[in-house]
Design a protein around this nucleic acid. Sequence first.
DNA 1: CGGACGCTTGAGCTAATTCAAACTTAGTGG
DNA 2: CCACTAAGTTTGAATTAGCTCAAGCGTCCG
Lengths: 262, 262
Amino acid sequence: MNVIKAPIEILMRALLARLTHYCEIGDAERDALLALPMRERTYEPGEDVIEKGDNPAEALIVKSGWAARYISLKDGRSQILNFLLPGDFFDLQVFVTDAADHSIAAITKVTALAIPGHAMLDVFSQDNNLGLALWWATLQEEAILREQIVRNGRRDASERVAHLLLELHRRAMIIGEGDNTEFRLPVSQVLIADALGLSFVHINRVLRRFINEGLIEKDKDLIVLKDRDALIAKCDFSADYLHLDAEPPRYRLRPLAIRPSG
Amino acid sequence: MNVIKAPIEILMRALLARLTHYCEIGDAERDALLALPMRERTYEPGEDVIEKGDNPAEALIVKSGWAARYISLKDGRSQILNFLLPGDFFDLQVFVTDAADHSIAAITKVTALAIPGHAMLDVFSQDNNLGLALWWATLQEEAILREQIVRNGRRDASERVAHLLLELHRRAMIIGEGDNTEFRLPVSQVLIADALGLSFVHINRVLRRFINEGLIEKDKDLIVLKDRDALIAKCDFSADYLHLDAEPPRYRLRPLAIRPSG
DNA sequence: CGGACGCTTGAGCTAATTCAAACTTAGTGG
DNA sequence: CCACTAAGTTTGAATTAGCTCAAGCGTCCG
C-alpha cells in the first residue's frame, strides 16, 4: 500500500533522539526501527484519534500538530489529562490493554506516523535496550501525569495557569517550536479550562489579569512570556518532572548477542 | 546478609499472581523470580519510605500495610497521588530515572520486600515475558493516575469521596482484605483531603452527610458501604480503569529460548 | 452577509474554604 | 488508675474563590 519513505526519516530522527536519551541505541537498533512498516495518518481539528473503548492495532507518533488525551463524564464534563506535542507517543498501552480507557482528540490538524502494534512490539521485545527505552518513556509520561495531579489538586487558579503555560512553553522549546520567550499555543481557553479543572470564564479572567500585570502578552495563539521569572515564582515551577536533561541512564544492559539456551 | 526465606513465598505468590495476570509466567520465569535476593524492610506510620530526590537502589513491594505516594509544595500544601496497598510495587521507576520526583510515606506500619535494582532489572530484561508483564503493571498504574486526575478535576466533593471509597474498597477486596460491603480504611480524613484536593473539614462534612443519609457506616477505620449502589450512582463509578479483570494479554511473545546471534 | 466559534466582562450565587473551638480517642508516664 | 498529651474528628460562623448565567464582542469562513 502507500507505505511512505521520505517523511519517515524526519520523524525517525525525533524518535531516535528521544530513545537515545534513555538508552544506548546502536546501529542494530537503528536499523530495526527504520525497518518498521509505517504509514502516515492525518486528523482534522476536533477529530477523535482514539475513542474510549477503541482497540487500535497501531501505535502512533505525533509528527506535527497538537492533540489531547481526555476523559469525558456522562453529563458532558470533560477533563484533559495531558497535551500531546510533536514527538510524543500516542497509545503505547494499546499493546497490553484491551480497550483504551480514555480518548485522544486532535486539537489542530495532526499528522502522525502509525506503526502496527505487533511489528513495534516485536522490535521492542527482541531488543532489550529498545524495550528499556520504551519503558522509560512510559515512566516519563507518568511523571507528567503526577505533576498534573498536584497542579490541579493543590494549586489555585493563577498558579495552575502559570504552571501549565510554563510546562507547555518548555515542551514546545524542546521540540524546536518557539524560543526563550514565546511559543504558539493553539489551544482555546475552553480546552485550557478542561485541562486545569476550571471554568473557561475563569481561565479568561486569569489570563486577562496576567496580561494586565505585564506577565504575558497574547496575539492569536502566540504567547509571549514577558516576565518568565515572575511566572515561575508565582507557581514555584520546576521543570524537573519533565525529565528533559540528558542524564545517562541509571543502568545499562549488556548488548544482546548470544543467549544461552534453556 | 539476613536474606529471608520464609516470607518470600507468601509475597511471591502475590507478585506472581499479579504478573500472571498480564502474561504467561512459566517455570523458568517463576524460578528466576524466586531466585531474586530479597530482604524485608519495615516502616513506621508517617515514616518516609522514599523521599523526593532519593536515589534508591532497590525496588520495593508492599507486603502489608498502606502507604501513599505524594508530592509536597514549598508552603506545606501536599497532594497524595495514589495509595499503595499490599501487592503494589513501590518505585519501579528508580531503575531508569535518576532521582525520585515524589515521595512515599508509610500510612500504617508497612512491611515491604526489597529487591536490589540491578538484580530485578537483570531478570526482567532477560525475560521478555516478565519485562512485558512489568510494563503492563506500569501502564495499569498510569490508568489509576489518570482516573485520579478526572476525579479531582471534574467532580465535586461528594462525587470525589464516593469515587475514592469505591476504588479503595475494590482494591482492598482484590487483595483479600474486606468483603462485599466493608473494608478497613486506615487513612485519616486529613489524608483523604490531601488525596482529593479538598480541605479535611469538608471531607468530614461529606462523610458525615453520607452517614446521615445511610450510605455508609463508620466505626474506627472500618467502613461499611451500606448502599453501594447509591454510591456508585452518585459518582458514576466504573471499575474499568483498575483493569482488574483477568483478560488475556493482547499480544503473547514467543517464549525465550535460543536467540540468534548477531 | 450570516453563522459559528472563541473571547470578554458583569452580576449574583454557591461550594468549599478558613478560622476557631469543643470533643473523642489512644497512648504515655507518674 | 488517672492525668496529660497528641492526633484525629466534629460543628458553627464568616469568608471567598471560582462558578453559572447572560450578554456583547470580534473574527474567521463558507
